[in-house]
Amino acid sequence: MIAEIFTVVYAAAVFAYVSWNIKKGSFVVDPSKLVLYLFAAFLIIVGALYFMGNELESTVLAVMKIGAAGILFAGVPPMIAATIGLFRFGDEYGSNIFYVRNHIAGVIDTVSSLVMIFAGILILRIDLVAVGFFFFLFVPFTGGALANAYYYVNQRRSEK
């Protein structure tokens, strides 16, 4: 029961923080500082659990897995925002709505690849990191190729 309550509270905290970032339109805490804060919190939690008598290796692995869960929770609000965007922006906005949809598809791709990379690092799955990184490299090229194709298709159509 305690684990489920912790899950709900942890998820709510991560959702609230990520949604706050999305609503603000920029980072609430600078990412370079945020990484340092999270690493400091990781060291403090692991140190405290170690001095309470836990084994170091299992403690580190468990805390890293909880961190990976945080990464997965952090991927949920952008996915929901992308879903709303995909259903919200219909054809009534004109032909240039394609670029908005392209951006939304890019958000889905980027969030998916970043979740794979960072969750893979934290649960020590190198194959997940490798595939995520490989996919992350292709994301801008995919979006660019789609926008390029649509631009020229649309231009040819308007010239006819």
Partner: peptide, 15 residues
């Protein structure tokens, strides 16, 4: 360990 497994399972499921 059980807590980490539970949290990770639900996080992956929600994602």
């Amino acid at each position: 360990s059980a807590l980490a497994d539970t949290v990770f399972f639900w996080a992956a499921l929600v994602f």
